[in-house]
Design a protein around this nucleic acid. Structure first.
Length: 820
RNA sequence: GCGGGGAUGCCGGAGUGGUCAAACGGGCUGGAUUUAGGCUCCAGUGUGCUUAGUGCCUUCCUAGGUUCGAAUCCUAGUCCCCGCACCA
């Protein structure tokens, strides 16, 4: 048995000591920037799922390095965030301490995986040297008009006296006070205007080398739709609403305003006040899933809207199924032609009016329907527009509205502006000062960073609000007493540009060096989970575009290529989680099988972009392979390679390299096994060294060890990647050998059948082959393989012995067989 | 509710129009070596038919369809997984 941990430690120490993977910036090789999504350093450390993610990147980085690229491959930590603060509340440990411990642990674990990061570039977002630039960028965005304040809903617990994250709301109750119902409060908060880039974000998706499904998800998230903005008069003032179906305007029988709408109060009449209040109490979370799980419900507000074309008086309801932030937070309801509206109308006995009939079918407008007809058709019951098709009616109705100045054609996006305010301690303080006289005043750049105070009280309210030293300050403009903003930035803000900070991680004059950016940006290969498809990846793209427009860089996009790894599940197929007790730790696996074995296993189960389950038997399969390789090398004696071996070797080098380049690691691992089978019968040292080089990105420790055992003094990790000699690939020869193998199998099968069914033992074998295949079937070799005499004839051999005329069955690559 | 993805042998999974009964791994069965076992090596491992015969038939969630040809493309359905803006 091999002592894996000794070998692992040996090589990890050497790599560290010799700075094997440190980037040489002066190198003139072609650059490539390989990056994995940096982790949130959770207190429970990293599990095998992380290991999979980093192994995927590491294999790629190692490949590229050996292929002669100058590889930037850094690591850092997304170290601000809620869990650290929760730990502070529950375990009475300061978030900074908690985070520091977690990061240290992560680094130790990651080094244990043998990852080839350039550790000298490590960054932490909770470091003032990092978050200073968060604040800097916030101010730049503010100046550019891309940051603004607006009211928005938050979850609120009256016992904690604080805002709750969606994660802290359980079944409508507070996570700490399970008896306390969560309320919804409307607070002034900071937003980033991501929607200003909606069109460009959408348009540029097509040019990205990303998985199609991620692109589709982003497109749908941005959610562009063509429609119309229609003005309804309500209580004397105009309300704009958005619809994609202006052709159904004559079918509007009620309006529904979001129950979370900021102007909802203006619509509630005195007599409906208590009803509405009762209704609003039912909604206990701002979480989308929670909202959707609620049955569609509503309540009459007491107000009416005026249909801009018919002048009809339309009742306005408040409903839990209308999004406050999409469109204008109010929809026109057309129950005959929208299923949700239909159900709502049935439930509250509201009118249903048909205005669209199926093309060509003159159906009666008053006919009762059992479900909404949501398709396009011909208009009915729509005054002057009756008879037009939906498509025509859209144009005509919008035109009619336009002449009355009561509507226009618009484009709408589902994408919302990015709410970055967090009423929490463990994040970047937003560098804003509120002055009684001057209003909202940005902190002066020279005063950055606005440091997060260390001594604060946790558990009740936002710790920054109760810290007078932090809170009270002077106005930068007039010098009078003023108060600081106590909101901190969403941690997605931190992760929206970290990939730029790696380029000059210790620069304290600027967020990043322009020259470095020009050389290294964008990231060539980004690797991470699909859970970030919409948020992190959109924010990063937004940030890149905004920075470009502020002349910080030239690139349009941050991540040229993206690879999404699948999820690693426990052996039961469930998501790994502490509570399920199915978490696999790399340390345990490493002790038992060696980390190289685990790396090999993780990438060979299935294509790395698919979800996989941990399997103990599977790991043992990988272990067996590594042990075989190891023992083969131990007793290795040089032997000249055959033409067939040479052909296979070169073919595999070619295919294997292509597989790794395209993240087909599972298929690559098969080729590695195939190559080992080829060499196992004996080979020269050169071929063996090639095998080790191919193995090294996946199993770096073992490869270094064996490389050294072969007498090499340098690191295999820095060796040149093998280049296949295409001339040596002899497909004919390989095919002939395959045919030979197949024939051997066939003969054996026939012998077996005779033995079983005829109870006879075959004594002699005769095979008949096509003349030009004769050279592929050597009778001596065949006899050796089969164990009894094999005679080979050409089909056209007149002298051949063929009593049953088996030579008639002969086809190319498939000889006839006769057994006696 | 909205959005994305998936279903292949005993199991994990390759495979996206012919070269496919389907790579590779695991399991199981038999054999060799060894012999206390393990490791290692070799062979077999969907169903039925059948000439000893390398052959034929059937099969890739279900039901239809497109095509000379479908695991692969289309339509409908069933089931499963993932994301949903204050977790990161």
């Amino acid at each position: 048995m091999i002592n894996f941990s000794t070998i692992e430690r040996k090589w990890q120490n050497r790599w560290e000591k010799k700075e094997t993977f440190k980037l040489d910036e002066s190198s003139r090789k072609n650059k490539t920037y390989v990056l994995e999504m940096f982790p949130y350093p959770s207190g429970s450390g990293l599990h095998m799922g992380h290991a999979l993610n980093y192994t995927i990147g590491d294999i790629y980085a190692r490949l590229k390095r050996m292929q002669g690229f100058n590889v930037l491959y850094p690591m850092g930590y997304d170290s601000f965030g809620l869990p650290a603060e929760n730990a502070a509340i529950q375990a009475k440990e300061h978030p900074a301490k908690y985070t520091e411990k977690s990061v240290k642990n992560f680094i130790k674990q990651q080094k244990g995986l043998g990852l080839s990061y350039d550790w000298s570039r490590m960054i932490k977002t909770s470091d003032p040297k990092y978050y200073k630039w968060n604040q800097y960028f916030f101010l730049k965005l503010l100046k550019k008009g891309l940051a603004y304040r607006k009211k928005s809903n938050v979850n609120w617990c009256s016992k904690c006296n604080t805002v709750l994250a969606n994660e802290q709301v359980h079944l409508g109750m507070c996570w700490r006070h399970t008896e306390t119902e969560v309320e919804i409060k409307n607070l002034e908060q900071w937003f980033i205007k991501t929607t200003a880039y909606a069109e460009e974000l959408l348009k540029d998706i097509d040019g990205l080398e990303w998985p199609q499904r991620i692109k589709t998800m982003q497109k749908n998230w941005i959610g562009k739709s063509q429609g119309a903005e229609i003005i309804f008069e309500i209580n004397g003032s105009p309300w704009k609403i958005f619809t994609t179906r202006p052709d159904t305007l004559f079918g509007v029988t009620f309006m529904v305003v979001s129950s979370q709408h900021s102007k909802l109060n203006e619509l509630i009449s005195d007599e409906q006040k208590s009803e509405v209040k009762k209704f609003l109490k039912k909604i206990k979370s701002t979480k989308q899933e929670d909202l959707d799980k609620l049955e569609k419900e509503g309540v009459f507000t007491g107000s009416y809207a005026k249909n801009p074309l018919t002048g009809e008086k339309i009742p306005i309801w408040a409903g839990n199924f209308v999004l406050a932030d999409y469109g204008s937070g109010m929809v026109m309801a057309v129950p005959a032609h929208d299923q949700r509206d239909f159900e709502f109308a049935k439930k509250y006995k509201l009118g249903i009016k048909r205005v669209i009939g199926e093309h060509g079918k003159a159906r009666k407008a008053n006919e009762k329907i059992s479900e909404a007809f949501i398709g396009y058709g011909d208009l009915i019951n729509s005054e002057g527009f009756t008879g037009l098709s939906s498509e025509e009616a859209k144009e005509h109705i919008i035109n009619a509205l336009e002449t009355k100045k009561l509507g226009k054609k618009t484009i709408n996006y589902k994408l919302r502006d990015w709410l970055v305010s967090r009423q929490r301690y463990w994040g970047t303080p937003i560098p804003i000062i509120y002055c009684k006289d001057c209003g909202i005043v940005p902190t002066k750049e020279i005063d950055l960073p606005v440091l997060l105070p260390e001594k604060v009280k946790f558990g009740k309210g936002n710790p920054l609000e109760t810290n007078d030293q932090f809170l009270n300050t002077k106005c930068p403009d007039c010098g009078n007493n003023a108060k600081r903003e106590t909101d901190t930035l969403d941690t997605f803000f931190d992760s929206s540009w970290y990939f730029l900070r790696y380029l000059s991680p210790s620069n304290d004059k600027e967020p990043f060096n322009k020259k470095s950016v020009k050389k290294w940006f964008p990231v060539d290969q980004y690797i991470g989970g699909a859970e970030h498809a919409c948020m992190h990846l959109i924010y990063s793209r937004f940030f890149t575009k905004a920075l470009r427009d502020m002349n910080y860089l030239e690139a349009n996009e941050p991540f040229r290529k993206l690879f999404n790894q699948g999820m690693l599940r426990g052996k039961d197929g469930d998501k790994m989680s502490k509570s399920k007790g199915n978490v696999i730790l790399p340390e345990d696996v490493s002790k038992k099988y060696g980390i190289d074995t685990a790396r090999l296993f993780l990438i060979s189960v299935a294509s790395p972009d698919k979800d996989i389950s941990w399997s103990e038997e599977g790991v043992e399969g990988s272990l067996r392979f590594i042990l075989n390789v190891y023992s083969f090398l131990k007793s290795f004696k040089e032997k000249k390679v055959t033409k067939l071996q040479e052909s296979k070797l070169n073919r595999i080098i070619k295919e294997y390299s292509e597989d790794l380049d395209n993240f087909r690691y599972n298929s690559a691992s098969i080729k590695l096994r195939e190559l080992f089978e080829v060499l196992k019968s004996g080979c020269d040292k050169k071929s063996l060294e090639i095998f080790l080089k191919l193995l090294s990105p996946i199993c770096p420790h073992i490869s270094e060890e064996l490389w050294e055992k072969l007498g090499n003094k340098n690191f295999i990790s820095l060796e040149r990647w093998p280049v296949p000699n295409l001339k040596k690939i002899n497909e004919k020869l390989e095919l002939a050998s395959k045919d030979f193998e197949k024939t051997v199998g066939d003969i054996k099968y026939i012998l077996k059948m005779i033995k079983e069914r005829k109870k006879k033992v075959g004594k002699k074998v005769f095979i008949y082959v096509i003349p030009n295949e004769l050279k592929n079937y050597d009778s001596k070799k065949l006899s050796l393989e089969i164990g009894i005499d094999v005679n080979v004839f050409a089909v056209n051999d007149k002298e051949k012995y063929d009593p049953q005329e088996k030579s008639k069955n002969v086809k190319p690559g498939r000889p006839g067989i006769y057994v006696e």
